[in-house]
Nucleic acid binder design. Sequence first.
DNA 1: ATTTTATATAAGAAAATTACTATATATTGG
DNA 2: CCAATATATAGTAATTTTCTTATATAAAAT
Lengths: 111, 111
Amino acid sequence: MNNALSVEFIQQASDVIKVLGHPQRLKIIEYLEKEEKSVSQIQEHLSVSQPLASQYLRHMHSRGIVKYRQEGTTYFYSIASEFIHKILDCVSECQQKVESGEWELAMFGTE
Amino acid sequence: MNNALSVEFIQQASDVIKVLGHPQRLKIIEYLEKEEKSVSQIQEHLSVSQPLASQYLRHMHSRGIVKYRQEGTTYFYSIASEFIHKILDCVSECQQKVESGEWELAMFGTE
DNA sequence: ATTTTATATAAGAAAATTACTATATATTGG
DNA sequence: CCAATATATAGTAATTTTCTTATATAAAAT
């Protein structure tokens, strides 16, 4: 079932994964899961400054993780890749397993 | 099907995901997927120095991503969490979908 | 035309990450 | 006890990331 990952794919995938390895950006992705949101909605949801929200989104856009649609001065962002949806499912499933006591997210908190 | 992620879980999960957002560390995880490996095996597999390999592993161990078993002077590392296996499955599935043309890993490579 | 609203962009300081070199520890074999 | 092997740890320079402040753009409203 598991083919080996190619060197290039590992490089690309880790680039994408890296973006999700950040609480605020992961929160954005979760917020966008169901439907597109405007920058100001995202900004309020995170309680961050406008430029910082914009920067997060630009960052994720440059990696192909989100896309946007413009309507007047409003930009609606949404998830651009199936891979992101899958990862999010995975994280969500993990939370459920952890809550049910079936799994541990991480085994030790040492250091 | 999708419960909302809690703030604490997002924090913890992004901490773990962050570790995978690095080509060499992701490669280690993939290398460990089937079975445990010694530090020197991992070192050779990555073509990095001994201290660097050890540092990667210590880093991943501190996050509960890998665990080890000692036998003499040899340390055998393996994946410590189900979550990591799941993420790896997800990445592997993604590569297959990308190769088959069904998905794109990322939509734009701009910037 | 001017103001307001929504967002983007730029520049830089502070903090974190990365990878290197040098050294330490601990187990095994002679 | 001494050397060799396998791995860990410490210290650090270079790079990257993160977040802030200030400014720009562009559409809409007055």
